[in-house]
């Protein structure tokens, strides 16, 4: 549908939309939003809400991950359902007893530990993992293998928070743990994935000891760029033996400038 100009006052600065994704120049009816802009917003919100509540198909994810030819563990946090997950971040950070045992049992078999453990959890957006986890790993894992780094089994955690990776990494004796997590969905980006890196993970690790890449999605940070930056952070973390606020991401990322401040004479 489109709104009839006779009723709706459109704004003459719609061309400025090329400079921003912000919802500018929406027009108005009286002081209010025109019907089309109002319903477009409702659709965007519905997408973001569904992304939060859509359960991740872990069987499908397992199939996707199987191409990487690594053992896969299916684990769960102590958050029993979605409502619990949203209200009790503390429980999302803890592995269930059964899952703790499953990880411990696995690490029994391999005494020497690993260089890197990789954990995957839907976090606040299953869509983010569904769309972005496999494409990222498809680029990252071969690069890690080329560096002759040992990789622990891929761990899928249902209803996990970032810190759930600490217990897993600790139990698997991994030097470095990565967790791929669905981020808080934005209205215009319901499918954004984050990756957190923690060196020498232990239960109770402070968040300031982690590094993070966020906004990995189509239209955000591409999986190619994310892989480049992750490899930089992984190499640095393993050689310096730490992650966190002291480890700065110094990879050069092209900052594309959209334009100047056109509200002022160009002499400024």
């Amino acid at each position: 549908m489109s709104d009839k100009p006779a009723i709706v006052q459109h704004n003459p600065w719609q061309k400025l939309r090329r400079y921003t994704d912000a919802r500018i120049a929406l027009g108005r009816v009286g002081d209010s939003l025109p019907t089309q802009a109002h319903l477009e917003f409702q659709l965007a919100h519905a997408k973001a809400r569904d992304a939060v509540h859509l359960p991740l198909d872990y069987e499908l994810l397992q199939q996707q991950l199987s191409v990487f030819r690594l053992p896969i563990l299916t684990l769960e946090s102590q958050a029993s359902d979605r409502a619990c997950y949203l209200q009790r971040p503390d429980l999302g950070r803890l592995l269930s007893e059964q899952s703790l045992k499953a990880v411990a049992d696995f690490s029994e078999g391999s005494k020497q530990g690993y260089d890197i453990a990789i954990v995957i959890t839907e976090g606040l957006s299953s869509l983010a993992i569904d769309k972005n986890a496999s494409p990222l790993l498809a680029q990252l894992l071969p690069a890690l293998a080329a560096r002759q780094l040992s990789i622990a089994p891929l761990c899928m955690v249902k209803q996990g928070r970032v810190a759930v990776a600490d217990a897993i990494g600790e139990s698997l004796q991994a030097k470095l743990v990565l967790i791929l997590v669905g981020e808080r969905p934005g209205l215009s980006s319901p499918d954004s994935m984050g990756v957190y890196l923690t060196y020498q993970p232990q239960v109770g690790t402070a968040d300031s000891k982690r590094n993070c890449l966020s906004n990995i999605r189509e239209g955000g940070l591409s999986s190619e760029d994310a892989t480049t930056r992750l490899l930089y952070l992984i190499d640095q973390a393993l050689s310096r033996a730490y992650t966190g606020v002291d480890l700065k991401d110094e990879t050069e990322v092209e900052q594309h400038r959209l334009g100047q401040n056109f509200l002022l004479p160009s002499s400024n």
């Binding site: 704004n11 600065w13 400025l16 939309r17 400079y19 921003t20 994704d21 912000a22 500018i24 120049a25 900052q255 400038r257 959209l258 334009g259 100047q260 401040n261 056109f262 509200l263």
Partner: peptide, 15 residues
């Protein structure tokens, strides 16, 4: 604006 782009900021200021 996600990257503090001057034109992007200006567009929202004008709006």
């Amino acid at each position: 604006h996600p990257t503090d782009d001057p034109a992007g900021v200006a567009a929202s200021v004008l709006d």
